[in-house]
Design a binder for these strands. Sequence first.
DNA 1: ATGTTATTCCAGTAAAAGCGAGAATACTGG
DNA 2: CCAGTATTCTCGCTTTTACTGGAATAACAT
Lengths: 224, 224
Amino acid sequence: MSRRDAKSALYEQFARMGKGLSNSKRLELLDLLSQGERSVESLASVAGLGLSTTSLHLQGLKEAGLVASRREGTFIHYRLTGEDVGALLAMLRAVATTHLAEIDRAASKYLGGNVLDPADEVDRSELLQRVRAGEVIVLDVRPTLEFHAGHIPGAVSVPLEDLEKFLATFVNDEEVIVYCRGAYCVLAYDAVRTLNASGHRARRLHEGMLEWRLAGLPVESGAA
Amino acid sequence: MSRRDAKSALYEQFARMGKGLSNSKRLELLDLLSQGERSVESLASVAGLGLSTTSLHLQGLKEAGLVASRREGTFIHYRLTGEDVGALLAMLRAVATTHLAEIDRAASKYLGGNVLDPADEVDRSELLQRVRAGEVIVLDVRPTLEFHAGHIPGAVSVPLEDLEKFLATFVNDEEVIVYCRGAYCVLAYDAVRTLNASGHRARRLHEGMLEWRLAGLPVESGAA
DNA sequence: ATGTTATTCCAGTAAAAGCGAGAATACTGG
DNA sequence: CCAGTATTCTCGCTTTTACTGGAATAACAT
């Protein structure tokens, strides 16, 4: 084997992982998996994909070394192969946001309105400090299972769909900080709008759980 | 446009950048560009690709926001769009190395022999400290143009092809530290072998110029 | 065993990517 | 303005990818 061929073979290997990141549906799946392991069917329904397609993408991701699977009864749970995969995903998003102007437009279409207004965002250190001082209420608006897989200590789990119900009993006027999966997760944006519309002071945590964990900040798992 | 569609559109944008990383030849091109800007023809010859194919890949990378181009006379010089692109590339390599076992095998085939022996490697801080103390000679074995685009302060430019010639006049018995482009660049491995074979004490800098720069360490440009 | 459920495997199809060879284009220097 | 050079565009051609609907598997419960 020539030097050239050996070099190609090596870069071919790196490209295997690159291929995993080269499709929007696969990125959606990775994004979901960054919150904890999930079954194929659950991934398919959230990502809006057919089952066989989802299965195929997951096998592609496994081939790329980005995910691994575990059998539990009839279910097969997929998960990221490591923390570093989440970091890679976050960096891809960050670099893409910096260099592709279309992302801002697509993001504001998806997340709604004035996404870029930083006045509504709290950074991680501020949240940490204020929740420890008991000055704020932290709301985790992801689905319950994701909350159980890991959340910010002290956060209350209120899945977005239960927010209205929660508000009915929420007479407190403390400030609320809302978070969800990560940088481009829509849940917290929606929640902040709902909270503000019903007269509460609410802001969104900058980014979300993925980046919180990557920053090495404390994570609690199980029920609140 | 539905929520689903808006979400897809957003992830489609991230996938654009992912596609840039999904082909081995494109990764080779990015790797070369991480050392500084280059013309199309120069990239094509080093990567072993046809001119039209190279041009097409470069346009793909431009579409992905990973590279930009600049015209100078009849030449068009391509470059990475930012330092963060180099960081993304380095992280992709690192994550792939962690999770794809085949990479070790492909790497040792390409780089030759006992790649993994860490005894032959010097880390960045050790190099920095010892070159400042004047205890070692640092050899940059990349092509001259890449050396000019940016090198470790105090390093001597000896392109690999000129190494034999250099050795003829090199009677010093100080230790030599060799570096080249980055983690999987073959030049420094070859150079260390040549140096050792002719009785010199030589070790390789861990990784290379790309990672040195990303670590925020001092870089000098222009002639030595 | 048998039926149930979650997942994977298997064609088959349409679309896209990768590639080289040669024509076309864009700039430079007489 | 014209020849020369670097790059891009345009075809064809082959390979790969994305996806679907239905058959096949694997573990489980009865």
